[in-house]
Design a protein around this nucleic acid. Structure first.
Length: 278
DNA sequence: CCACTCCTGCGT
DNA sequence: ACGCAGGAGTGG
């Protein structure tokens, strides 16, 4: 469900509710997440004050005063929300904490909900463990500097794989998923099937730039909710109606009026305009 | 590298 | 009943 912009929207919405608050009494469901977790795994977070909420790519991190914390990966259907304790937890709620605020945040719970259980909550014990995990990813697509842009460009051109597949590789650029990969190819006017190695420098530059702009647009509209994505307050995002091609099979291209096509590429749907994108 | 796998839910 | 879904690791 969530890609970089959605996770960033969740992060921002949770900031005022979690920063400076204390997480206590972790509870976990019996169902196995991608990485199984127990209460015991969360004891280092129990009773600790939240000092930071960070994100890299699609990975969300909660750091506490003790230096450790937890990573939250939302997978396809994960939600991380703060809700009043009076509200019964949704079906498929797998991890919960009481949130004890210095402010008015008491009486609420932090809840990780994930029907398909492709997501996970994984503790890290210190900065070293945290950095190790973040280091497995390429640069964050929402925070590229000039060096990062050059690195991503080179990595795109260094492979014969289709550019749309390369954009989904979190080790190349972090935070791009199936929606924004298709959108970036459209904005760059490149066919998703193009081999990375076939891009000239201008095309590669345009693609990296398109990645940045579609991700930023996603954040501006608080994420894409074409079905069930919500932020930490349960609010839907607005980006779906700004998409150029994703989920628009059979509809007219907003640029040229030709029909938007859907093809399956690497087991995932890809949407594109055969006329605008070469 | 690709296809397959982990799951549940929804629309056709 | 079947196909499809915003992710990502694995094993051939």
């Amino acid at each position: 469900m969530p890609e970089g912009p959605e996770v960033e929207t969740v992060r921002r919405s949770l900031l005022p509710r979690l920063l400076g608050a204390t997480l206590v009494r972790p509870r976990v469901s019996a169902k196995k997440l991608r990485t199984p977790i127990t209460k015991k795994d969360l004891r280092d977070v129990d009773g600790a004050v939240v000092t930071e909420l960070f994100r890299k790519g699609k990975l969300l991190g909660i750091r506490t005063e003790r230096g450790g914390g937890v990573f939250v990966r939302l997978g396809m259907t994960g939600r991380l929300v703060v809700e009043p304790k009076t509200q019964p937890p949704a079906l498929h709620t797998h991890v919960r904490f009481d949130v004890c605020g210095p402010g008015a945040a008491s009486g609420t719970e932090l809840r990780f909900v994930d029907p398909r259980r492709f997501g996970e909550v994984v503790p890290f014990k210190d900065e070293v463990e945290c950095a190790l995990e973040l280091g497995r990813m390429g640069p964050d697509g929402l925070a590229l500097d000039d060096d990062d842009r050059a690195v991503v460009r080179v990595r795109l051109q260094a492979t014969a794989r289709a550019i749309k597949d390369v954009l989904l590789d979190q080790a190349v650029v972090a935070g791009v998923g199936n929606i924004y990969a298709a959108e970036a190819c459209f904005v760059a006017r490149l066919s998703p099937h193009r081999a990375g190695s076939s891009l000239d420098d201008d095309e590669a530059r345009a693609l990296v730039s398109a990645v940045e702009s579609v991700l930023q647009q996603g954040v501006r509209h608080r994420g894409t909710s074409f079905s069930d994505y919500v932020d930490g307050d349960g609010q839907r995002g607005d980006n779906a109606r700004h998409l150029h091609v994703f989920q628009r099979e059979g509809e007219p291209c907003r640029a040229c009026g030709d029909v938007v096509r859907r093809v399956v590429q690497g087991q995932r749907s890809t949407f594109y305009c055969g006329r605008c994108q070469r």
